[in-house]
Write a protein that binds this DNA or RNA. Structure first.
Length: 504
RNA sequence: GGCGCUUUCGUCUAGCGGCUAGGACACAUGCCUCUCACGCAUGGAACACGGGUUCGAUUCCCGUAGGCGCUACCA
């Protein structure tokens, strides 16, 4: 078989913010496309006019921009296969629906939603299929003139796919192998609705994937049950030879309990399920986002990539390029993955460690400003350098670093009890003298002079340092003492020491 | 209910007939140390169950059980 150009697509429905599971699906599509030098299409599946949410499309595009997942063509990206919004492709679908109708592979059905609901009430497990369609109101049971009359009179109808029962339909899935379903259990799916003159997902999906020359359909496992229907549709159009290859990804599950990961879980357990903060236009609710929570996009990508796939080595930290090089659909796991958000925070920690201080500083600066602190960026960066190793997120820095910018006004009771000895005031008084006498206030000069003094007086290093820390920080935490005093400078250091001596 | 997918430490997973079943997160302990962290080291922790196939099954096959998904004029 001739090598086909790899073309994949991510085709969300603009019904709200992009779910983190969708992000992973898009990421896998992206990695696969890039590895094979292929193309990635961004299509909007807005065939359900009733569920459209304004702003969702823009949100999704912005999410991918932030994550560093880029598309080659599609909505907002241009390309030769447009339009890429399904609501703008009505005439195209109509043509293919008519073709199916003309060939007898589909039929028109007039049953109203109410009638169908009544049928389901009446017959348990009712399904619109070869068995039942003979008793329904459709172009198979009604005389031709009657059908024409109903349409002329403006009765709403749908077009259903006519599925022949009793055939084993095989789907070759890259991840799962051969999946077999008997066509008898499939129902005559609605392909088209006259009410809004739009197709349903199934028809639009097949037509678009074909017209857009998609070579591989990489999507969530929830689509696996309808994959045989899609195969049948490709066949009905006689597109079997260019049918894309399928790969159905396992789902992301709740961290605890049962079921698919949902927004509720994030709210309940305290983690975002959306890449960016989302403001619901209807309810006004705000949902947190990975970006706003302080995640680095590379950390999110790395974390997501390893949920359901791994390179088969012990390496867990991979750059986008490494992911592209090593990604392998055949090595994706088959079972759902519980969403381990704690591990996500670890990834962020690792990426903070790797990220240049100069890049992190502006993030922390924003937080400082929110707390009324305005200092030169070099000072911010200096604190980031000293402290970033101990946090998972830059926002965690503030409570740990406050003392760099704000002098303590009270002193932690437990630390005072433990570290402030009866001789501490005397030692601090002497230390002030030492520091004042220093020709320069470099860390090296401080260390040298202080060490000599401690040695001469035969003090204990720990006693001095812990008491000193208490005067500068207000409690027993923080980096090495000379880093703190060095950052504060001589004036501020001594000022804080004197203040402490008065208050303790 | 029907159909499909799935099942290795608490979690993410490696394993592709013979291994002391490996790694990571989390957890515990220790080391480092002027504090708190970081870091480093060590430790506990798993092949769902029952049948086969085989000299030998975590690995292959079949059941059972559990989990997940689908079952709309939603995607």
């Amino acid at each position: 078989m001739a090598e086909r150009k790899v073309r994949v697509r991510f085709a969300p429905s603009p019904t709200g913010p992009l779910h983190i599971g969708g992000v992973r699906t898009a990421l896998y599509n992206y990695l696969f496309a890039r590895q094979h030098g292929g193309e990635m299409v961004f299509r909007i599946e807005d065939t359900d006019s009733t569920r459209f949410v304004p702003g969702a499309e823009e949100y999704i595009i912005e999410s991918f921009r932030w994550l560093g997942i880029d598309f080659d063509e599609g909505v907002s990206f241009g390309g030769q296969h447009g339009p890429y919004r399904q609501s703008e492709r009505r005439e195209i679908y109509k043509k293919y629906v008519d073709q199916l109708l003309a060939e007898g592979k589909a039929y028109i059905a007039f049953d109203t939603p109410e009638e169908l609901a009544a049928k389901r009430e009446e017959i348990q497990n009712f399904q619109y299929d070869a068995q039942t369609r003979t008793m329904m109101r459709n172009s198979l049971t009604l005389p031709k003139e009657e059908v024409e009359r109903l349409i002329a009179e403006g009765h709403q109808y749908v077009v259903r796919f006519r599925i022949e029962p009793g055939e084993d339909v095989h789907v070759q899935d890259i991840i799962r192998g051969d999946v077999k379903i008997n066509s008898s259990i499939l129902d005559d799916k609605v392909l088209y609705k006259s009410a809004d003159q739009l197709p349903t997902y199934h028809l639009a999906n097949i037509v678009d994937d074909h017209l857009m020359e998609i070579s591989h359909v990489i999507r969530g496992e929830e689509w696996l049950p309808s994959a045989p229907l899609h195969v049948l549709l490709y066949r009905a159009f006689d597109w079997g030879d260019t049918m894309p290859q399928f790969a159905h990804l396992p789902l992301l599950l709740k961290p605890d309990g049962k079921g698919k990961l949902s927004k509720r879980d994030g709210d309940r357990l305290g983690f975002p399920v959306f890449p960016l903060e989302w403001h619901d236009p209807k309810t006004g609710d705000v949902s947190r986002g990975y970006r706003e929570d302080g995640y680095l996009p590379q950390a999110v990508v790395n974390f997501l990539a390893l949920l359901g796939w791994n390179p088969g080595t012990d390496q867990e930290l991979l750059t986008m390029q490494e992911l592209i090089n090593q990604f392998d659909l055949t090595k994706c796991s088959k079972s759902g993955a519980k969403f381990d958000y704690v591990k996500g925070t670890w990834f962020n920690h690792e990426y903070i460690l790797q990220t240049d201080d100069a890049l992190l500083a502006p993030q922390f600066d924003t937080i400082l400003r929110e707390n009324g602190i305005e200092v030169p960026m070099e000072r911010v960066q200096e604190v980031v350098r000293m402290m970033k190793g101990r946090v998972n997120f830059t926002k965690e820095l503030w409570p740990l670093c406050r003392f760099f910018f704000v002098a303590p006004t009270e002193y932690d009771e437990k630390t005072v009890k433990k570290r402030w000895k009866e001789y501490s005031p005397q030692q601090m008084q002497e230390l002030i003298g030492i520091l004042e006498a220093l020709p320069d206030f470099s860390q090296e000069a401080q260390e040298q002079a202080v060490n000599r003094w401690i040695e001469e007086k035969e003090y204990k290093l720990g006693d001095v340092m812990n008491a000193w820390r208490l005067t500068l920080v207000g409690e027993g935490k923080g980096p090495h003492m000379y880093e703190i005093s060095g950052f504060l400078g001589r004036e501020e250091t001594i000022k804080r020491m004197r203040a402490a001596l008065e208050r303790l």
